[in-house]
């Protein structure tokens, strides 16, 4: 089993974070969960993902006003005390909208290529997802537009007989690039960030992160897709050095994200963001790719 995509791949590496940094990250995670409940429904809290938490954290890192934390109790675990940030912040509202919109389109996509018993379940929950998406799209039409365009472009790319890896990764990457660029438009930026330049940096960083997310997911699903004859960008050409090839492409995307991020003046979550890019993602990558190197060695 992989690191499972249900909750996302963009995590933090707790062992390499300071206590206060991890508390801050957890606070963002809990606040996004609460925001999903507040804006949509208590069940919408179940679609909370690490990827969207990272998105919220990026947004908070850029914003002028620092988030204000206060203690509260978790709805799912009343014995657990959590730190919540102020849910009035735009960062959480954007991240929550992105969560429900991408969950809706993911579900729609799953309906197309899942076994019948799963499809029954998806059909049952679809109306809920649809209503949340409608609400979010009304508030942020550009998010809905960007994600729906991504889905269409993904289908077109997968149907193209001459599809190459970059083309397959492009829709997700472009979408996340646009989403990150959107932050520069929506969030009142902290000093000394300049809007136009920040937008370009974020777009480029988002593109690279999106590419990484798409590729890591593809690496994770490689065996499954091979078995079920599904589309997978790593199945496009038969490579002998597959694990190295996966590693090189993932590294390259991560490098691009890091190089873009490096051009941004450091913000309040710099340590956590660097922890994600330099430690956590690298470890997740290693873990997933090791599935293929290990089997190869035993075959040898």
């Amino acid at each position: 089993m992989g690191e499972k995509d249900l909750f996302g791949y963009i995590k933090v590496d707790q062992a390499n974070l300071l206590g206060k940094e991890f508390e801050a990250y957890k606070g963002i995670y809990c606040t996004l969960c609460r925001q999903l409940g507040k804006d949509y429904s208590i069940f919408a809290r179940l679609i909370l993902s690490y990827d969207c938490t990272f998105y919220a954290m990026m947004a908070l890192d850029l914003s002028e006003e620092p988030p204000c934390y206060q203690e509260g109790r978790c709805r799912f675990n009343p014995f657990k005390k959590c730190h919540y940030a102020d849910t009035q912040t735009l960062a959480f509202s954007l991240a929550a909208a992105l969560s429900v919109i991408s969950a809706y389109y993911k579900l729609k996509d799953n309906l197309l290529d899942s076994p019948w018993y799963k499809r029954i379940f998806y059909r049952m929950v679809q109306p809920f997802f649809a209503s949340w998406r409608k609400k979010a799209a009304k508030k942020y039409p550009m998010i809905d537009e960007s994600v729906s365009k991504m889905m269409e472009r993904q289908i077109t790319a997968e149907r193209d007989d001459n599809c190459v890896l970059d083309q397959a990764a492009d829709p997700t990457a472009t979408m996340l690039g646009e989403m990150c660029g959107l932050l520069a438009d929506q969030i009142p930026l902290r000093e000394p960030l300049k809007q136009e330049q920040t937008k370009r940096i974020l777009q480029s960083m988002g593109y690279a992160m999106g590419r990484w997310i798409y590729l890591i997911d593809a690496c994770d699903d490689y065996e499954k897709d091979q078995k079920h004859h599904n589309f997978n960008p790593f199945l496009l050409d038969n490579r002998e050095d597959l694990p190295d090839y996966m590693q090189a492409n993932l590294n390259h995307a991560l490098s691009d994200a890091l190089l873009s991020y490096g051009l941004l003046d450091k913000g309040r979550y710099d340590n956590i963001i660097r922890n994600v890019l330099c430690v956590s993602c690298v470890n997740i990558q290693k873990k997933i790719i090791s599935k293929y190197t290990d089997t190869k060695e035993t075959e040898d």
Binding site: N251, H252, S255, L258, L259, G262, N275, C278, V279
Partner: peptide
């Protein structure tokens, strides 16, 4: 340069992977 990036080895950045 591209080879360095494909090895996640960026000058000026600490990308050790296990510890910062």
């Amino acid at each position: 340069n591209m080879n360095a990036r494909r090895a996640y080895n960026n000058p000026g950045y600490n990308t050790a992977g296990t510890g910062m």
